[in-house]
């Protein structure tokens, strides 16, 4: 199955996070690679979105959208580094 980039997570997570996820840095629990979420490999429709580490393929994030609800699992991330809101709203 073809994968996409973490960029595609921006839409589905727009109402989950106050920050812009694709320019947020995170560390992979499995291999310690540090990357922007926009750099992750994302496997999309139809069930939801599975974001995997670009380096070791570990599952970082799972988002399932069903019946008007979203389930979010961030089991493969050690941490996320979120810029302060004032820094995020640059324009």
């Amino acid at each position: 199955m073809d994968h996409l980039d973490g960029n595609v997570l921006a839409g589905p997570t727009a109402d989950l996070f106050l920050f812009e996820p694709t320019t947020t840095q995170g560390q992979c629990q499995s291999c310690a690679d540090i990357a922007m979420l926009g750099q992750a490999m994302v496997y999309g429709q139809p069930m939801g979105f599975v974001a995997r580490c670009r380096n070791c393929d570990n599952v970082l994030i799972v988002i399932i959208e069903r019946a008007g609800q979203k389930s979010l699992s961030m089991r493969g991330l050690r941490w996320l580094r979120v810029a302060d809101r004032a820094m995020n709203d640059r324009i």
Partner: peptide, 9 residues
């Protein structure tokens, strides 16, 4: 339409 989206690309 939902957006604009993304800040990396």
């Amino acid at each position: 339409l939902r957006g604009p989206l993304g800040g990396w690309f």
